[in-house]
Every structure is written in C-alpha cells, then in structure tokens.
Amino acid sequence: MNLFRADMHIHTLLSPCGDLEMSPANIIACAKKRKLDIVGITDHNSTHHCALMQKLGTENGIFVLTGAEITTREEVHCLAYFESPDTVSEFQLYINAHLPYIQNDPQNFGYQVVVDEHEDIVQEIDSLLIVGLDQSIEEVQRKVRELGGLFIPAHVDRPRFGILSQLGFMPDDILPDAIEFAQSATPEKFRIDHPEFNKYQLVSNSDAHCPDQIGIRYTIFDIEKPSFKEIKMALHGKNGRKVLVA
C-alpha cells in the first residue's frame, strides 16, 4: 500500500462563491504544487467542470474524483462522487430536474461560468446554483446509491448548511460512506466534541473557494493506487485499505 494525499472538496469558478482564479487549469497547477495526489471537484449543484478537471488531472498525474456538492431541501450540503463520466452525466440530469429555477444575479452571488482548458469562458449558467434541490437528504442519498456513487455529508459540524445545524442530528437512515468534519482542529477533537458521529469514517478537506485554500485540510488514503474503487474500499476499511485523517 501507498499513502496518497487527497483534498476531496474543491470549488471551481463555476460555483458563484468560487474565486475567478479557480479555473480547472489553475486548480490542477496548485494541487501539484501542494503535493496533492487526489482532488475532488465539487461545485454547488453542478458537475459541468468534471470532464475538464479529469482530463487535466490525467495529463498532470493527479487523480480527480468527479462529483458535486448538493444542497438538499433541508439545506444540508452533501458531497457526491461518481466513478464514470456516464454516471456524472446522469446525476447532472437529476440535478437539472430538481433544481428550482431562480435567476442568478452575478452582482450579489457571483459569476457562474464554465471555462475550457485555456480559461476561455464557454458557457454562463443562468440558474442560481446555491439553491436547495426539491429533494430531501434521503432522496439525494438514494439517487447517489442508485448510480453507484459515494455519499459524504459535508462539514457536519459547521453552524451553517451541515447536518447538525439543519437537522440537529444524523437521521438514522442516512448511511454515508464517510462524513466530512470542518470545524474541529483535529479528528481527535472532533471525536470528543461529537461522540454521536463515532461510528462514521471521517474525512477532512479544504472546501477551497480560492487558490490559497487548496490543500489546507486534507485526508490521506492508504491504498494501492488512486482510483474510485480503491478510495471506496479505504472509506470502508476493506482489503487492508484505510484512511488516515490529517
């Protein structure tokens, strides 16, 4: 087994709150500089940069976990990752079907643009991406499972948009692959602060919205090589694979 450093929660400039410096090309360059082996691409309710991130990652020796950060009806943020471009596309159709249309106002919320590898804008997304889907957390989880994806409630301990703030405690029918903590300084501290989450695997990520934040929090995977299947095995402690939280 080998150790690989992962930051699984990064926003591109497509997210309205994402800095305009967060182009896929720049994210990959920063990730390389910070010695990340795995990056997760998780824009708010959108997967439009996954394909480009994956292409650039492959060219630069960085494994890209493709997915999105979903806002559920309860306004809980959840990370979802998919193994293949086909399942990413299918999940995008699900988002399209369930994201209520509210026109984005770039002055207030920020621009939502898709760029190419030369950082030229190829599309502007009109529908505000930070709105909650009309789907409960259970319904989102079901869809992710149906597509063979990974389901990880994001920053569960933050005072906003996490399981704890929105729902008070983990619903008993949510069976995540892991949970992301963000507030506590260390996993040990998180375990002390939130014993109710003791049975779940932890991951720690940056939730970067600007280049400086990429890799400031990360998770180490003890796996054969970076791949979706290896990461999934590690999250479940299978076949000698495991997760070391930094």
Partner: peptide, 28 residues
C-alpha cells in the same frame, strides 16, 4: 427552520412553526 436552534432554544409547551418537513422535526 434550523433544528439545532430549536433543540437549543425552544421551551416545553411551545408550538413550533417551520417549513422543515424532515422526520427529524418530530424527534426534536
């Protein structure tokens, strides 16, 4: 509409007005 807030601040005997329809509402 924040269940954590209700857990911390509602008083016994309060009727709770919310738009959250998740089942955790009943547990809280």
């Amino acid at each position: 509409d924040l269940l954590s807030d209700v857990m911390g601040n509602a008083n016994e005997g309060d009727v709770w007005v919310t738009l959250q329809s998740h089942k955790n509402v009943m547990a809280v």
